[in-house]
Design a protein around this nucleic acid. Sequence first.
DNA 1: CTAACTGTACCGTCCAGACGGTATAGTTAC
DNA 2: GTAACTATACCGTCTGGACGGTACAGTTAG
Lengths: 179, 179
Amino acid sequence: MPRKPVARDAVLDAYESLLIEVGERAATLDAVAKRAGVSKGGLLYHFPNKEALISALLERLDELAQEDIEQMKAAPDGSAAYFIRSSLWADTPMDRAFVAATRLAEVAHEETRRRFAGIQQQWLDVLAEDVGPEIAKAVSYMGDGLYFNAMFEGGQGTGDASREADVEILLGVLDRLRK
Amino acid sequence: MPRKPVARDAVLDAYESLLIEVGERAATLDAVAKRAGVSKGGLLYHFPNKEALISALLERLDELAQEDIEQMKAAPDGSAAYFIRSSLWADTPMDRAFVAATRLAEVAHEETRRRFAGIQQQWLDVLAEDVGPEIAKAVSYMGDGLYFNAMFEGGQGTGDASREADVEILLGVLDRLRK
DNA sequence: CTAACTGTACCGTCCAGACGGTATAGTTAC
DNA sequence: GTAACTATACCGTCTGGACGGTACAGTTAG
């Protein structure tokens, strides 16, 4: 087989980064190609149109989400604590894919919204097994809140320390609820 | 005095609606003018450019937020309960302005982000007076989570009933925390 | 009379996507 | 073993349309 498609992943990574850092509006094909160190023609070789780029990103998101849910189920101190911790922006592949996809959902991209709904439901189910349906809801919304705020920080580690402190506080609140 | 500037408010309302329903990308000047039942020239008579439209929206948001915070302070069953209830999408002027502005923040609009941070801080301060700083954080994140989800529903009353049920659940969780 | 519009024509820029071309790694034929 | 061929992985340029904004002449309501 001929040379490996190194550009494909580079393009996807670049698209993800730009979505996170500058938003959907500025994540143009030209910008993505430039960031990826690839020509625009090369980009379009792998992804015939922008929709294909988005689809690939959502595929990646789904894969990572499945892995994450497995880890969540297996978490030693319970899935709820794992969930709160992992809702903090930690620049993991999952975080990046998730927040990048959030940018698309904001722009009213229907397919993205559907995927989100699916992942959220799975999270909620796992949480309910750990802490029951009511607290699961509370934990789920707190996690969404953390992501909501991560969005506004544009991917930079702004307020990293204070966010980590917030997570500790939320874990404390969770403990109070567990009793 | 000549006729009243009826178009001004119509334009602002239209811009708000389009941001909520179809996102920032599709809220073009042409689309806004059409939705407002106003000519593009008329729109630009009141708002010389798009930035002016945004500024006016943020002004409106700030005004409504101040009113909201006053009501929150005066809420009979505590500001925390008021906050959770008001985080539900209820199509109030405040909700609309808030979610519309969210769309702009998503597109990395700096001024919008700054305004948000200010309002959030005020909320947090009021909440802390009611339930203390720790639970205030939890409540604040839950509220953000509710808004985060409202965003994805695009302003439609999708899942209205289930969201209301969620609010009741969160109020129950709050009660458990109060003790 | 004047503020509050309507309507149209137009400009510059940006962007998604089309297209033609090129380089190189494998594969086949002899 | 090598020449001929094929498929993949790109590059660079161009175009058509949308969008923000300008300009300006005309119309309507108070």
